[in-house]
Amino acid sequence: MAAAEPSPAPGQHREAHGHPRFHVFGRVVEVRREGALWQAYRVGADGKRTPSGFVIPDFVQEQELAQFLEDLFHESASPHNGDVYRID
């Protein structure tokens, strides 16, 4: 039997799928906390997830994820998709 996921802190929320998703310079990335580690997945147009191939350090807090992703992928910015933000 799997342990229940902790409820988000006041002022935070989780999407219907249960894990935060981010628009990262035109791509969708889903981030999951699995034990003490973050796991990141690219989300395709069909909704299928594949491992992202990059590492998010375990000390990064959930509220810091968007900034971390922006710092990591800033070279992917373009005039047409120059933002990183949480998808709600």
Score class of each variant (00 low, 15 high):
residue 1 M to Q: 08
residue 1 M to Y: 07
residue 2 A to T: 01
residue 3 A to M: 11
residue 3 A to G: 11
residue 3 A to W: 08
residue 4 A to D: 05
residue 5 E to N: 13
residue 7 S to G: 10
residue 7 S to L: 15
residue 8 P to N: 10
residue 9 A to K: 11
residue 10 P to K: 07
residue 11 G to P: 00
residue 11 G to A: 07
residue 11 G to M: 04
residue 11 G to V: 00
residue 11 G to C: 01
residue 12 Q to V: 09
residue 12 Q to A: 13
residue 13 H to E: 12
residue 14 R to E: 08
residue 14 R to P: 02
residue 15 E to Y: 01
residue 15 E to K: 08
residue 16 A to K: 10
residue 17 H to V: 11
residue 17 H to A: 10
residue 18 G to E: 08
residue 18 G to Q: 05
residue 18 G to C: 00
residue 18 G to Y: 03
residue 19 H to C: 14
residue 19 H to P: 01
residue 20 P to A: 06
residue 20 P to V: 06
residue 20 P to S: 06
residue 22 F to Q: 02
residue 22 F to G: 00
residue 22 F to K: 01
residue 22 F to V: 07
residue 22 F to C: 02
residue 22 F to R: 09
residue 23 H to W: 13
residue 23 H to R: 09
residue 24 V to H: 07
residue 25 F to C: 10
residue 26 G to V: 04
residue 26 G to K: 00
residue 27 R to A: 11
residue 28 V to W: 01
residue 28 V to I: 13
residue 28 V to S: 01
residue 28 V to C: 03
residue 29 V to S: 01
residue 29 V to D: 05
residue 30 E to S: 13
residue 31 V to F: 00
residue 31 V to R: 00
residue 31 V to D: 06
residue 32 R to N: 08
residue 32 R to Q: 13
residue 33 R to H: 03
residue 33 R to S: 07
residue 33 R to N: 03
residue 33 R to C: 07
residue 34 E to F: 01
residue 34 E to T: 09
residue 36 A to C: 03
residue 36 A to W: 01
residue 36 A to Y: 01
residue 36 A to V: 13
residue 36 A to M: 05
residue 38 W to A: 11
residue 38 W to Y: 00
residue 38 W to V: 04
residue 39 Q to C: 11
residue 39 Q to R: 15
residue 39 Q to E: 11
residue 40 A to K: 07
residue 41 Y to C: 11
residue 41 Y to W: 08
residue 41 Y to N: 12
residue 42 R to V: 06
residue 43 V to D: 09
residue 43 V to I: 05
residue 44 G to R: 10
residue 45 A to K: 10
residue 47 G to W: 05
residue 47 G to F: 02
residue 47 G to A: 10
residue 48 K to T: 13
residue 49 R to V: 08
residue 50 T to Q: 15
residue 50 T to K: 14
residue 50 T to S: 15
residue 51 P to T: 04
residue 52 S to T: 02
residue 52 S to E: 14
residue 52 S to I: 03
residue 52 S to Q: 04
residue 53 G to Q: 08
residue 53 G to F: 04
residue 56 I to E: 02
residue 56 I to A: 05
residue 58 D to R: 15
residue 58 D to Q: 11
residue 58 D to T: 00
residue 59 F to N: 14
residue 60 V to F: 06
residue 60 V to M: 11
residue 60 V to L: 05
residue 61 Q to A: 15
residue 62 E to D: 06
residue 64 E to T: 06
residue 64 E to Y: 00
residue 64 E to W: 07
residue 65 L to Y: 03
residue 66 A to K: 06
residue 68 F to D: 07
residue 68 F to M: 03
residue 68 F to E: 02
residue 69 L to P: 08
residue 69 L to K: 02
residue 69 L to C: 02
residue 70 E to I: 06
residue 71 D to C: 03
residue 71 D to E: 15
residue 72 L to F: 12
residue 73 F to S: 09
residue 74 H to K: 14
residue 74 H to R: 15
residue 74 H to C: 13
residue 75 E to M: 14
residue 75 E to F: 05
residue 75 E to N: 12
residue 76 S to M: 14
residue 76 S to L: 15
residue 76 S to H: 14
residue 80 H to K: 11
residue 80 H to S: 14
residue 80 H to A: 13
residue 80 H to E: 15
residue 81 N to D: 15
residue 82 G to D: 10
residue 83 D to C: 13
residue 83 D to N: 11
residue 84 V to T: 07
residue 84 V to P: 00
residue 85 Y to N: 07
residue 85 Y to W: 13
residue 86 R to V: 06
residue 88 D to I: 08
residue 88 D to W: 08
residue 88 D to P: 14
residue 88 D to F: 14
